[in-house]
Amino acid sequence: MKKIYLALAVFSAVAIVIGSTVLSVSYEPLDEVAERMNLTGENLLGSPFPEYTIPGFPCWAGGIISGLVGGIIVFAIIRLLMKVGEDGGN
């Protein structure tokens, strides 16, 4: 069982490093079409880590930190959501 968690941790770490270095450039079909229309796609909320970068850090380092922090937050939120109301349920 623990092997699965180890494998998932390794896959995640490798994905975050690759996604922040060699395969970090995103130019999706949606971007291509939007570019032709000069659409900028500005988000209404100013995100603290835009495009997985951290101000003051090189892009690759910001990407790795963003990936790790994001992954941990996602993990924690799912655990929390699945725990809410659990104790009072029975």
Binding site: I4, Y5, L8, A9, F11, S12, A13, A15, I16, I18, G19, S20, L23, S24, V25, S26, Y27, E28, Y52, G63, G67, G70, G71, I72, V74, F75, I78, R79, M82
Partner: peptide, 16 residues
């Protein structure tokens, strides 16, 4: 395990 796989999916989405 569901939480861990969801976090892994988040990481996998970073690869373009």
């Amino acid at each position: 395990l569901f939480s861990a796989l969801t976090a892994t999916v988040f990481a996998l989405q970073m690869v373009n």
